[in-house]
Design a protein around this nucleic acid. Structure first.
Length: 571
RNA sequence: CGGGGCAUAGCGCAGCCUGGUAGCGCACCUGCUUUGGGAGCAGGGGGUCGCAGGUUCGAAUCCUGCUGCCCCGACCA
């Protein structure tokens, strides 16, 4: 393609509302244009990237035995009523009514539609397993769309759904998808990590997220320095190998005016922070006898709200008690709370359970107990993993320590089990001629988000640095001063045709701009390879070659440039 | 949904406090010169100053309401 056809419009400055680097660069490079909040047009340059990402995904899905189909973006409410999600899904589900006053939604995901397909088309266990996928536009009415296409409302997703007669079969396909995703992101030359994830409201037993590693990522990932363990911070298990030490102090009650925070307690009373406890009061679950329940974590630790929510004694979703509720139940407010003489169930983090001689609020305003010991001063609590792991914690697999890095979630694979097949009665006949619910898995990749994540991971002060497999063009031809030289124009055209013949995605900059402008634009839009043509060089039979990340260009014989580019592209 | 901010040319901004009919840089058009890292000079086009009321002889500027957008938080199959 020629720049004159592509109409590239680049800018030096980025719009003031573009916060993250990928958003800025995509706008500056003319890849995307914003239409409204969370809605973007993919311009020709950007669409080329999307298509390359899609093709890689499509190839790997096909290789893994999945079959592509295409479902409607608009879905009738009836299916969502059946699954129960018409009521459960919040305002994120965009609902509307047609001329006959029937309710519809823009599909944020397609479990209902695919389960409807499966229950109609699949009759026998002999047809299983089946894995359907599509690459299609989704809509989620995000509360706060942001970061450009990283968190937009309309976006393109590859979503796959598998159906099985047995859990073993589901596990097999889950593993196959794990491998396919690994292949996909490896082929895109992205640094990524599959991590254990909380399966959230969607339920199911197994769940793994694929994260592209980038400092700007919204998620924190814990990984083992020695082993393979990696998990989303919200899921990463905090283990405690310590043993509770014997009590050496008597419990004393201490006046602690103006001491409402852990930091104040540490500063004012010279208490090590590892000897303090945070007491957080939240609402108890329906099954629980109590209204409220207390969660204890060590003073220097952070409560993990996902872990807390998942605890059977805690209300889902997690809901902290208000000041008034706490005062009514305890008689003291936040800042003076602790486990001693607390009239509600107590769940303690594993680390808290092995503490001794520690300090905590006395449940009396402006008083704390110091020298508290479990069993002697207060009944031993229910113990659970409640906290976020911290860098340096032991890895749950026993290999090395955990460290934390940032990631962008670009893929998620789930084992759903029978959640949807049960609600929607998706059954096949088994070997005995009996109805059997199909097990399901679902597997997503955020196609548009991958493009943004690739930029977050690969850019410099000049612009985007596309990994070769997803670059909009593999090589740019930049002729210098073509306007005055018909021979240079002819030479540029010839090389352009040769590269096209060789099956290479080539962009010829035929704009007749000044050299600096063309260089800057090709670097901004991130084309991996560049060939500069000039009369001066061609007279000597030479062209200049430069990779996007090379510091200097090198002279290459004109006769050898095509094979050199071929070699660079193939790796 | 709670808190904060912004809205003036395609983009980035000034002007507003102290009312007098809109300006700068980039981009765009024309001409000349220039031509290997975002050229120079000269000329030019483009804005109902987010919308609707109000105050005033006069409103981008002051007042009221609305809308949109952004940031932080909550939320995120």
């Amino acid at each position: 393609m020629r720049t004159s056809q592509l109409q590239i419009t680049t800018t030096k400055e980025s719009p003031a509302d573009a916060e993250v680097i990928s958003h800025q660069l995509m706008l500056r490079a003319g890849m995307i244009r914003r239409l409204a909040a969370g809605l973007y047009t993919w311009m020709p340059l950007g669409l080329r990237v999307l298509r390359k990402i899609e093709n890689i995904i499509r190839e790997e899905m096909n290789n893994a035995g999945a079959a592509e189909l295409l479902m409607p973006a608009v879905q009738p409410s009836e299916l969502w009523e059946e699954s129960g999600r018409w009521g459960q899904f919040g305002p994120e589900l965009l609902r509307f009514t047609d001329r006959h006053q029937r309710d519809y939604c823009m599909g944020p995901t397609h479990e209902e539609v695919i389960t409807d397909i499966a229950r109609r088309d699949l009759r026998s266990y002999k047809q299983l397993p089946v894995n359907y996928y599509q690459i299609q536009t989704k809509f989620r009415d995000e509360v706060r769309p942001r970061f450009g296409v990283m968190r937009s409302r309309e976006f393109i997703m590859k979503d796959a759904y598998s159906f099985h007669a047995s859990d073993e079969s589901l596990q097999q396909t889950f593993d196959d998808m794990h491998q396919a995703y690994t292949n996909v992101f490896s082929r895109m030359h992205l640094q990524f990590r599959p991590v254990e994830a909380d399966s959230g409201a969607i339920g199911g037993s197994g769940s793994k997220e694929f994260h592209v590693l980038a400092d700007s990522g919204e998620d924190a990932i814990a990984y083992s320095t020695e082993g393979d363990y990696a998990a989303n911070l919200e899921k990463a298990e905090a283990i405690c190998n310590d043993v509770r030490a014997d009590a050496t102090q008597e419990m004393t009650i201490v006046d602690t005016p103006d001491t409402k925070t852990i930091q104040a307690l540490v500063d004012n009373f010279n208490l090590p922070i590892e000897k303090t406890i945070k007491t957080l009061i939240c609402h108890a679950s329906e099954e629980s006898d109590a209204d409220l329940v207390a969660l204890l974590v060590r003073g220097d630790h952070q409560l993990n709200e996902v872990k807390a929510t998942n605890h059977p004694m805690v209300k889902t979703p997690l809901e902290f008690a208000t000041d008034a509720e706490i005062r009514a139940a305890v008689g003291a407010g936040p800042g003076s709370l602790g486990p001693v003489n607390l009239a509600m169930p107590v769940i303690a983090d594993r680390t808290v359970a092995v503490m001794s001689d520690f300090g905590a609020g006395a449940n009396i305003e402006d008083k704390h107990y110091f020298g508290i010991n479990w069993d002697r001063d207060v009944e031993s609590p229910v113990v659970a993993d409640l906290r976020n792991i911290e860098a340096g914690d032991p890895s749950p697999d026993g290999k090395g320590q955990l460290q934390i890095m940032r990631g962008i979630e670009v893929g998620h694979i789930f084992q759903l089990g029978t959640k949807y097949s049960e609600a929607m009665k998706a059954t096949v006949l088994d070997e005995n001629g009996k109805d059997r619910l199909m097990s399901m898995g679902c597997y997503g990749i955020g196609v548009t988000r991958v493009a943004a994540a690739a930029i977050e991971q690969n850019h410099d002060e000049k612009g985007i640095i596309w990994p070769m497999p997803i670059a909009p063009f593999q090589v740019a031809i930049v002729p210098i001063n073509m306007k005055k030289s018909d021979s240079l124009r002819a030479a540029a055209d010839t090389l352009y045709q040769e590269l096209k013949q060789a099956g290479i995605d080539v962009l010829l900059d035929d704009r007749d701009s000044r050299a600096g402008v063309m260089f800057a634009d090709m670097e901004l839009i991130g084309i991996p390879l560049r060939v500069v043509l000039s009369d001066k060089g061609l007279d000597k039979g030479i062209v200049e070659f430069k990779g996007r990340t090379d510091s200097e260009s090198t002279d290459v014989a004109r006769d050898e440039i095509v094979s050199l580019i071929n070699a660079k592209i193939s790796g």
